[in-house]
Design a binder for these strands. Structure first.
Lengths: 313, 313
DNA sequence: AATTCGACGCAGCAATCGACGCAACTCGTA
DNA sequence: TACGAGTTGCGTCGATTGCTGCGTCGAATT
């Protein structure tokens, strides 16, 4: 890109707003050229322009201007990446889930064996040990997900192992909730986690919750099978800054749920479509689709940081 | 922290109450922004917010709103000792958008209120406090069951509150699992807990599990929706002395499941038909039907003791 | 000469205000 | 057991407030 500073008129024309609006944004929200001598003309650097692009995009999506300005001001590094993603929608398509349990290492094998034995003590022990050693994200990606997937595959093939699956789920759930109850939240919960309508799989969402708790982020969880009306209602009542909706299969991935969120009077700043159910091309604009747990966590962190100022305490 | 004054909507969202409720609190109890010109918008300072937090905290514990407001108004912080006394609660208590808990006491009312606000922190806190103070059985019978029943009734009547139900279930489940993980079992697990086929309600079974853990009894849980074949298979593999099968509604209470257990080659000593789904006259002979949680626990204890005697292990 | 600056004002719109009422729950009483 | 009284959260309504984008004006900058 060109690195020559732009005049106010040029920037205004490029953004599609009036010149006076740029001035207003500067003096009302402090969103202007980083270097500006009062009385002299404003010269916008590319970085300043990027900030304004974020501002324009967010306001165009219905975010309150004051809040949009706060977001735009305090995200010099995050905003370009996020903006990129907002436009492109996705990175990779959800593939690569063909990992056999064997490839996931000896820990996974031991866990799977304990599950077969219905040995809940050993299962819980292995999981909590891994969580304490490697953290939530690594444990989920390289231990729990492979084992759960393996059990699910066997279950589908042999129509058996239902007890194993249940027991395993329960132990994982317990381990996550233990992590969640250990972390102390700072400030109010501005992030809402929910399953899609009819979606029954909760574990990935609990993994996200545990990861957030591990990072010290406060959140709310709604759980499985959340009807659209209930989700809207919950967002209305709690007014979160970000909402993550999990969908495991395409059958539960109705994009209308996300559109409904975006169309709300006070819509959340960030809407995350999480899970392999969602299809990139059917997602409404303005929805972010994280590819894995780590990305979902980092996005949530970005929202938390940018809102610390406005929500304060 | 940030001392930026908050609007009424922002405060309402943060506390989880409606905007109109904030106004009501202001004009009924005088609990509002310290500086407020009639006609102008309310601007809540951090100090005002702190007062409201006290209000919310006290009501979440079952204190009558009028009294809670009196305390919140004249105290920057509430000492734990006085808080205890307030919880005894006198004066009438009204309704609004609440959950009927009947005569279950102020603790149940507070829990129900926290659930309505989707305040998982308050919910978990209240539950674990009750568990630590009164034990699993008393907490289940006089706190959790009434509230869960109330939510369920409301949910059936209004077709709403699904989020509340899910969140509450999750918090209860977490609290029980915390109890279960604290208790150290003595000896091998000779008691198997399972849901009936197609039965989805797990919470009562988890209550039983927690109560057993509290009593130092080792057990195994299979979870929800256990097909008969899976149950038989699990009994075969683990050879328990007692099996409890939970059924919540008649639809899931197929006596054949129990007969199958009794007909096994090495049948369990005791088969418990737990839950309101079972009908006494259709149960096969040799099946015991406990009327409440306490009885189920004492039966399990009796089995454990008789085993200790005979095997001398 | 063409822009842009700071200051001021205005119109549209969303949020909020005060007032009122409803529904639901609890408790005391019959 | 049923019913009225007292409480309380919250929805609704018409009016008001305050935020927001932008036009205008005289002076300063480029």
């Amino acid at each position: 890109m060109a690195d020559e500073p732009l005049s106010a008129g040029a920037v205004a024309r490029r953004l599609g707003v009036a010149v006076t609006t740029l001035r207003t944004w500067h003096q009302r929200y402090g969103l202007g050229p980083s270097q500006h001598v009062p009385g002299h003309h404003r010269r916008y650097t590319p970085a300043d322009l990027a900030r304004l692009e974020v501002m324009r995009k967010l306001t165009a999506e219905g975010v309150s201007p004051a809040e949009a300005a706060r977001w735009a001001k305090q995200s010099p590094a995050v905003s370009p990446a996020l903006e990129q993603r907002l436009r492109a929608g996705v990175g990779r398509d959800g593939g690569g889930q063909t990992i056999p349990v064997g490839r996931a290492g000896p820990a996974a094998r031991g866990l799977a064996r304990a599950a077969m034995r219905l040995d809940s003590t050993a299962i819980s022990g292995a999981i909590s040990h891994a969580l304490a050693t490697d953290g939530v994200i690594a444990t989920w990606e390289s231990l729990l997900r492979p084992v759960l997937f393996g059990i699910g595959e066997r279950h589908a093939a042999t129509a058996g192992l239902i007890e194993v699956e249940h027991l395993m789920s329960r132990c994982v759930s317990e381990a996550f909730s233990a992590v969640a109850s250990r972390g102390r939240p700072t400030g109010p919960a501005r992030i809402l986690l929910s399953c899609a309508d009819e979606e029954q799989h909760t574990l990935p969402l609990e993994a996200l919750a545990a990861a957030l708790a591990e990072a010290g982020v406060a959140y709310r969880t709604l759980g499985a099978r959340v009807p659209v009306a209930a989700l809207i209602e919950a967002v209305n009542r709690t007014g979160p800054a970000a909402v993550a909706v999990w969908s495991h299969t395409r059958a539960t991935a109705d994009p209308g749920q996300l559109s409904a969120l975006l169309a709300m009077p006070r819509r959340p700043l960030l809407v995350l479509a999480a899970g392999p159910g969602w299809r990139a091309e059917t997602l409404p604009a303005g929805v972010v689709r994280p590819v894995d747990l780590a990305e979902a966590v980092s996005l949530a962190l970005a929202v938390r940081d940018s809102l610390d100022q406005s929500t304060g305490d």
